[in-house]
Structure formats: C-alpha cells, structure tokens
Simulated scan of single mutants.
Amino acid sequence: MNWLTVWANTLIDELSSLRKNNRGTSAVEFAFLAPLFLLMLLGMSAYGIYFGAAHSIQQLAADAARTAIAGLNSGDRQNLVSDFISHNAGAYAFVDPGKIIVIAEDSMVDPNQFVVAIKYDARNLPIWNLLSDLPMPSMTIARKSTIRMGGL
C-alpha cells in the first residue's frame, strides 16, 4: 500500500465516524434558532407593552367618564375629568401622565351623553426600537368613552 491509499482510507474512516457522531448538534441548532427566538420574544414584549398602554388609555377614559357622571353641568363634568386624570393617570400601566391630552365635552350627537377623549403620545414605548420593516401601529394612541347622563 502506498501512503496515498492509507491516507484516503484514514480520511474515509474519519468522515464516516463524524457522520455517526451527534455531539455538538444541539449547539449548532441553538446557534441557528436562538437569534430568531430572541427576536420573537423581544417583539412580543414590545407589542405587549404597546397594547398594554392602549388598554390603559381606554380604561382611563372609561373611568374618567364614569367619574364625570357626578357633575351637575358640563363645566362640573370637565373639572371632574381633569381632576381624575391628574390624580390617577400615573396608576395605569405604561402611561406617562405628562403625555396625555384630554378632551371632555357634551356629545355633539346626543345632548344626554358626555364624551371623554384621550390622546396619548406613545413615542417612548420600546416598540419603536424594533426592526423598521415590521408593521407598526400609530405613535398616538387615541381612545374615547361615552357615558349617558341620567334619565332614560
């Protein structure tokens, strides 16, 4: 046997033993899947925070409208809403009270209804740090709540 044949046989034996060897396959699979998994996890967290903030704004509008029902006239109701927002907005998850704009007024459609509309600037939420190619929601969260005042 010449040295080339010995070397070729040795190489074939090594390659066949590598094919049967499963050590390290988990590390390779992890290296392929970990970045995708982390991207999905961070994306779900960022979108979850955004949806949590949107829900908090809706809940804040509903609670402010329920508070406004105690007012005797439109001015009283507006003061009650302003007071409620200033004292309680910080208690809602993911909401910065300084970024809230509130419009509280009688409904244009029905004089027996009072409307609380809230706009929230959501630019500081972590969702905007994700990939720019992803579909993104609006940077302003706008929610409103209407409540019927007394009577029928």
Rank of each mutant, 00 (worst) to 15 (best):
W7M: 14
N22T: 09
N129H: 03
I127G: 04
S132H: 07
I147R: 12
L15E: 11
Y47E: 01
A142C: 07
G52V: 02
V109R: 13
A70S: 10
W128M: 07
Q113R: 12
D106S: 15
A91I: 07
S82W: 09
A27G: 13
V115L: 12
S145W: 03
P35R: 00
A89P: 14
D121K: 05
L60I: 01
G24I: 09
A8L: 15
A142D: 05
L131N: 00
V116E: 00
Q58S: 06
A89S: 15
L130C: 08
A68M: 09
M149S: 15
P97M: 14
D63W: 06
G75H: 09
R143Q: 03
S17T: 13
I12P: 10
T67F: 09
P35H: 00
V102G: 05
G43L: 09
D96G: 13
L80E: 06
D96M: 12
Y47A: 00
P135T: 02
D96I: 12
L41P: 02
L38Y: 02
L125Y: 05
G71L: 14
T140R: 02
Q78V: 06
S74D: 15
S56I: 01
P135Y: 02
S74Y: 14
L72F: 12
A53I: 01
I118K: 01
L80H: 06
V6D: 12
L18H: 07
V116Q: 01
N22F: 06
G98L: 10
D121H: 06
A27T: 13
Y50L: 04
S45A: 11
N2C: 14
N124H: 03
N73G: 10
H87P: 07
V116G: 03
A70G: 07
M108R: 08
T67M: 11
H55Q: 12
N2M: 14
I118V: 01
S132K: 07
I85Q: 02
R148C: 04
F114H: 05
V28W: 04
I57C: 00
Y92V: 00
S132Y: 05
G98Q: 13
D110T: 10
W3H: 14
H55Y: 10
N21P: 15
A53N: 03
L80M: 06
N22S: 08
P126I: 04
P126D: 08
A122G: 04
Q113W: 10
A117G: 11
P135Q: 05
L42K: 04
I69W: 08
L39C: 04
F32M: 08
S132W: 05
N2I: 15
K144Q: 14
Y120L: 00
G150C: 10
I127L: 07
P126T: 06
L11V: 13
K119R: 06
Q78I: 07
S45C: 08
L72E: 11
K119N: 05
P126E: 08
T5P: 11
G52C: 04
S86M: 09
